[in-house]
């Protein structure tokens, strides 16, 4: 690839990625990852390398290392600069700033090309070792596939299943009692809310794994938050090793 074409490609890719990221700020994650990762980790450094090494005297590995390192460094300083402004570190500002920086570097590389007598374009590299690289990349893909399989297999297991019970003062002046089911297999529960031995509320309810319930006890003539309130949550099926949990407030 000639140098001018490389500069044109980097500038175009930056502009396209910048526009897509700006338009898809709330868009699908896969689209933003597809454009966002090269936009941050590859393009700024590559544009800088076009300026640093116009005659491509350095090899591919050297370009890769310096492009990646420079991209990260440019992102750090751009982010820090934006964070010190009143706008703060935000997506739109960062997209604009990185786009401008990368385009500026590309144009600077182009200007250098025009100003200097270009060296004769190096002959296209025909690298027989590319096949070996491709082989390795294919197998690396296998590793990633294995990882994805293993992650889905081991990600959700072995970390216990529990229920939570909590109580906090409510803005209305009463209290809020909440229950959360974190992966516990039982879905039938009973909550008993008492004050000084007097039953305030008792409810049986379904709460499947991942579910939660909140009970708000409003302040009334017979219920005051000044006396202790005790809530107890029990698993009705007793299928799991969740012990009865209880909270109390304002004793």
């Amino acid at each position: 690839m000639t140098r001018n074409r490389a500069i044109f490609l980097i500038a175009t890719a930056t502009a396209i990625a910048g526009v897509v990221l700006l338009l898809a700020e709330q868009g699908p994650v896969w689209l933003r990852v597809l454009f966002g990762l090269p936009f941050v980790l590859l393009l700024p450094g590559h544009a800088l390398m076009l300026l640093v090494d116009p005659s491509e005297r350095l090899g591919r590995a050297e370009w890769f290392a310096l492009s990646l390192g420079a991209s990260i460094s440019i992102t750090i300083f751009a982010g820090m600069a934006l964070a010190t402004t009143t706008f703060g570190l935000n997506a739109s500002g960062m997209i604009l700033l990185l786009t401008l920086l990368t385009l500026a570097l590309s144009f600077a590389a182009r200007a250098k090309t025009s100003a200097e007598l270009l060296e004769e374009a190096p002959p296209a590299r025909r690298n027989p070792e590319l096949r070996a690289v491709a082989n390795t990349l294919v197998l690396m893909t296998c590793v990633l596939l294995v990882l994805m399989a293993m992650t889905s297999g081991v990600g959700a297991d072995g970390r216990g299943s529990i229920v939570q019970l909590w109580g906090v003062p409510a803005k209305s002046g009463g209290v809020r009692i909440g229950a959360n089911n974190i992966n516990a297999p039982s879905d039938s529960y009973r909550v008993v809310i008492e004050q000084e031995g007097r039953l305030i509320s008792q409810q049986e309810f379904n709460m499947p794994a991942g579910g939660s319930r909140v009970f708000e006890i409003k302040k009334t003539a017979t219920f005051t938050t000044r006396s202790p309130i005790t809530a107890t949550l029990a698993d009705l099926r007793g299928e799991v090793a969740t012990r009865t949990v209880s909270v109390w407030m304002n004793r």
Binding site: R32, L37, L68, A78, G79, A91
Partner: peptide, 29 residues
């Protein structure tokens, strides 16, 4: 944290995913 925050804001990845990607890139580097 600045690089990670930029990636999170631009891609919508979770902090743990973005952090994993940043460290993977540093490993290659």
């Amino acid at each position: 944290e600045t690089v990670t925050a930029v990636i999170i804001q631009l891609t919508g990845l979770s902090p743990i995913q973005a952090a994993g990607l940043v460290i993977a890139a540093t490993r290659l580097l």
